[in-house]
């Protein structure tokens, strides 16, 4: 095992983590501000991917597709908030789970109705095609480096937005004391719609970016949703910082587990068994890590509301 391979795998883990952060950021924001469990977050991710693929196919431009994904997901989010989600804030988590589970079904079949049953084509823009050389002799896809870049920008942007802007101040106020913010004369209804649409747009952006690397198909949101939940629970629900660190932890643990576990087991058992057993353990690994973290820190690493 060479150092170049190890560096490349580390980068892969980091990049998977950043990808997960993009998906999880909107989810944790919405939970932090409104206290809402949104199972349909994965559907918004799917909306972003489909919008991007459809517009990119029609216009030939990935970048226009990216804009469309933001717009479509934000619009779908705003619509969803006004029509349905708004009525759920005062309900308990169970009603939220049922209603947003219903939304998953509706979005999945609705998307299939609109776009058909076959996966769509979405490719990386020409500008980001190809791979760049790494120090130590390896190569790394440019697009994946770009995703790391976008993730860092989104993290910084969110930090500034919440820490430095008027909207951010209201969001923080909303998180800590809802009555107070209403008493201050801030229109909490439109604030919630804006935050929800913003979280949805983040999910849509993630869907478009990840969609270029994966298969744009109905049902793509569900595995992403589960991983996003793992990430925000590890990080502490409502905490953007927690989501970032949780995402990178999950990305690294998953990648390194897939890479190293079969090799480690091969030292102890025949190679033909080590492969499948190692892979089985690797697929359980992030859940084991999550259970361990919650066992010792029941509210995640950086809980916003401990």
């Amino acid at each position: 095992m060479s150092l170049a391979l190890l560096i490349e795998q580390f980068l892969n883990g980091l990049q998977l983590g950043v990808m997960l952060f993009l998906i999880a950021a909107g989810l944790t924001l919405i939970f932090g501000v409104m206290g809402l469990i949104n199972l349909a977050h994965g559907s918004l991710y799917m909306v972003g991917a489909f919008a991007c693929a459809a517009v990119a196919a029609a216009t030939g431009s990935f970048w226009l597709g990216l804009v469309a994904s933001l717009a479509a997901a934000a619009a779908a989010g705003a619509l969803m908030e006004v029509a349905i989600i708004r009525r759920l804030y005062a309900r308990d988590h169970l009603d939220q789970v049922l209603a947003t589970f219903a939304l998953i079904l509706i979005f999945s079949e609705g998307t299939r109705w609109l776009f058909g049953s076959f996966p769509l084509y979405l490719d990386i823009p020409p500008l980001l095609q190809g791979a760049v050389a790494l120090p130590g002799g390896g190569q790394y896809p440019l697009y994946r480096l770009a995703i790391i870049g976008v993730g860092v920008l989104v993290a910084i942007g969110l930090y500034l937005l919440i820490g430095r802007t008027r909207l951010g101040m209201r969001i923080r106020a909303g998180e800590s004391d809802r009555e107070m913010i209403a008493a201050l004369g801030i229109d909490i209804r439109s604030l919630y719609t804006i935050v929800f649409a913003f979280g949805a747009a983040l999910a849509g952006l993630a869907g478009a970016l990840v969609g270029a690397l994966q298969s744009v198909q109905v049902g793509m949101g569900e595995p992403a949703l589960i991983l996003a939940f793992v990430v925000i629970v590890i990080g502490g629900i409502g905490s953007i910082k927690g989501a970032l660190i949780g995402a990178i932890l999950v990305g690294l643990v998953d990648t390194m587990g897939r890479f190293l576990l079969p090799k480690a087991l091969a030292l102890m058992m025949p190679a033909t068994q080590a492969g499948p057993v190692g892979a089985a353990l690797a697929s359980m690994l992030i859940y084991i890590v999550m259970a361990l973290i919650l066992a010792f820190r029941p509210s995640g690493l950086f809980s916003a509301r401990a």
Partner: peptide
């Protein structure tokens, strides 16, 4: 040891372990 959403998710985590196994 956990509660609320954390309880929801940690029970999911255990189920996922058994599922993948």
């Amino acid at each position: 040891r956990t509660s609320g959403v954390y309880f929801i998710m940690i029970t999911l985590a255990f189920a996922q372990m058994i599922y993948y196994f």
